[in-house]
Design a protein around this nucleic acid. Structure first.
Lengths: 199, 199
DNA sequence: TTTATAATTGTGACCAGGTCATAAATGCGG
DNA sequence: CCGCATTTATGACCTGGTCACAATTATAAA
């Protein structure tokens, strides 16, 4: 007696295999063989045919690519490059809108990056080991396209003890694209944060 | 005649080795041996002593870590989980504030995540293959702590052809933490985007 | 049913970049 | 010169492959 497993056809298997490996690149050939109920040799053949490299190559590719992107993301703690900073007074930063920041279709920067640049500039202006965004009012004025350099300018308008009023303006080709007013608190102690009531 | 290379002392070599591998994890033992002018065995010994795994392990670690973070970043296309969506009317989403979203020290969510949740909800409300944030006015009312679930509620207030007025409110434990008003354009064609003048 | 062809599976030799244990060589202070 | 730390070498083994080739199995056509 022979039990026939319902398998994929060759084309189907290859299609599914390709998809599986793009979504989840860390399978060994052995694991794939089990999953598809074929031999390891078949999997190797399939990979060969599909031009998919071996596990280690795939891992290396992910690691390399991801490493550089994550590194650049990390450096975005202060999003953009600080050009000028007089703590408690004024600051400027610039940010190049790259592939990773745009909406796939529109090639236009996602709002959060512009916000992040403005917000981090506001925080940098506050002379404290830690600053907290209390309240913001902002206006996105126009979209920013891939490849543009956004220049952020921030100014401290007023300060009363640990409370700062900061104004930030983002410009592209000397046209304003975002403007906002921040109220920030400079804090040293965590307890302050947890209990601070902002209004 | 013997030419003595100026090498590192054992401690120094190990210190530098450790630093080198954290900044640049893709060196093989052989490359390291050349760099430090010692044998491969010595490098292996050093790694053993320092508890640094082999190249493939390191690559795997970078790839795995980076992969999941990048994936989650990607999934933030619509930040948060959609709970309800009546296109053109109202929508709700929720977002759990996790480790990756908080400021290291304050354990408080970075503003861009809240903005991203609100912004993506606003965009989801617009019945179009693509939507563009034209203008936003928003107010961050209070900080959100690690582990909290943020519930976003969005409502379309008005619509004139492709122009939408949307109001979004974010709440934690039924306290409002962010409120904003969006003006969005629903678009089908890229050319529209590039030339759209928003005011 | 037989047979031609496609698809799959297995085999053996080889590779990189290691692990681990053990042994041999070298450097250097007292 | 001894003795100990340090470095280097050696050989067996591991994983997750590569490549070339042969053997087996499935399937459809004559």
């Amino acid at each position: 007696m022979v039990i026939l497993m319902a398998r994929y056809s060759k084309e189907n298997r290859r299609k599914v295999l390709g998809e599986a490996l793009t979504n989840h690149p860390f399978f060994t050939d052995e694991e794939l063989a089990e999953r598809f109920k074929v031999s390891v040799s078949t999997i190797r053949l399939d990979r060969g045919e599909l031009g998919i490299p071996e596990l280690r190559e795939r891992t290396r590719a992910v690691a390399q690519g991801a490493y550089s992107t994550l590194k650049s993301l990390n450096e975005q703690e202060v999003t953009g490059r600080l050009l000028e900073l007089v703590i408690g007074e004024r600051a400027r930063s610039e940010l190049l809108i790259d592939e990773s920041m745009v909406l796939a279709k529109a090639r236009v920067a996602r709002g959060q990056y512009l916000f992040a640049q403005a917000n981090s500039l506001a925080i940098a202006l506050v002379d404290a080991p830690m600053a907290l965004t209390g309240s913001v009012e902002l206006k996105f004025i126009r979209p920013v396209q891939l490849g543009k350099v956004v220049v952020a300018e921030g100014n401290v308008l007023k300060r009363i003890r640990s409370k700062y009023w900061v104004e930030v303006s983002l410009n592209v080709d000397s046209q304003e694209v975002l403007r906002g007013n921040w109220i920030l608190f400079s804090i040293g102690d965590l307890e302050d944060v947890r209990e601070t009531e902002m209004e």
